[in-house]
Amino acid sequence: MRALIQRVSQASVSVDGEILGHIDQGLLALIGVTADDDSTRADRLLHKLLNYRVFADDEDRMNRNLQQIGGGLLLVSQFTLVAATDKGLRPSFSSAAPPEHGRAMFDHLVMQASQAWPNTATGRFGADMQVALINDGPVTFLLET
């Protein structure tokens, strides 16, 4: 699984003008699922999302994680993250999970995240979503499991 995470001061995701998920300070995580991903990888990714130290401590160093700052976690499915872009001028999605598997893995991640961290929000799998954010830093990392 891949997650493109961005440290945000706020972020939201909407479908057809309806806001489905919103957070203030925290992490926006765009999630890509490959055909090889399983619940073990999803669980490892969740551990990284909750514990990755990208928030400033008292000395302004990235030493605090999402839990330590009490931030929000916004999970948004984005299959384009697993595209192969190394050849040609058109992305290849051959390594992306089929929709049923992608939904199952994303739903597993959301369920586990909601149980582990109450300040979790999400978009809608497979929908045409609009994501709004204010990237704080900017700080952006690509996490893989």
Rank of each mutant, 00 (worst) to 15 (best):
Q10N: 14
A104Q: 09
T34G: 12
T34R: 13
L89Q: 13
R90K: 09
R103K: 15
H47E: 09
M111Q: 15
L50V: 00
A42V: 07
T122E: 11
H22R: 11
A121Q: 06
R44C: 11
F106H: 14
P91H: 07
A121P: 08
D38S: 13
A3R: 03
L142A: 09
V110H: 12
T85Y: 05
G137A: 03
E59P: 05
W117L: 06
S39Y: 08
V15C: 08
G32Q: 01
L4Q: 01
S14H: 12
S95L: 09
R41Y: 09
L73H: 00
S77T: 01
G102F: 03
D36V: 05
R2C: 02
G26W: 01
A132I: 07
I69C: 02
D16F: 10
I134L: 09
I5W: 00
R64Q: 05
H22V: 11
T122C: 12
H101N: 03
V82E: 03
G26T: 10
T120D: 04
N65Y: 02
T40G: 09
H47L: 06
I23G: 02
R103F: 11
N63R: 11
V139E: 14
V110S: 07
G137V: 15
E144M: 08
G70K: 01
G102Y: 03
L89S: 11
D128E: 14
I5C: 04
A11K: 03
L142P: 09
E18L: 14
M62A: 15
H101T: 06
K48A: 13
L74V: 00
W117F: 12
L20S: 10
S9M: 00
I134H: 11
Q10M: 05
D86S: 08
A56W: 07
A97F: 01
N135A: 05
N119Y: 12
A56K: 10
F93E: 04
R7S: 15
K48L: 14
D24K: 13
S9E: 06
S77Y: 03
A116F: 06
Q112L: 10
Y52W: 15
A116S: 08
P118V: 06
G123C: 08
D24E: 14
M62S: 06
V13I: 09
P118R: 15
D107I: 06
D136R: 13
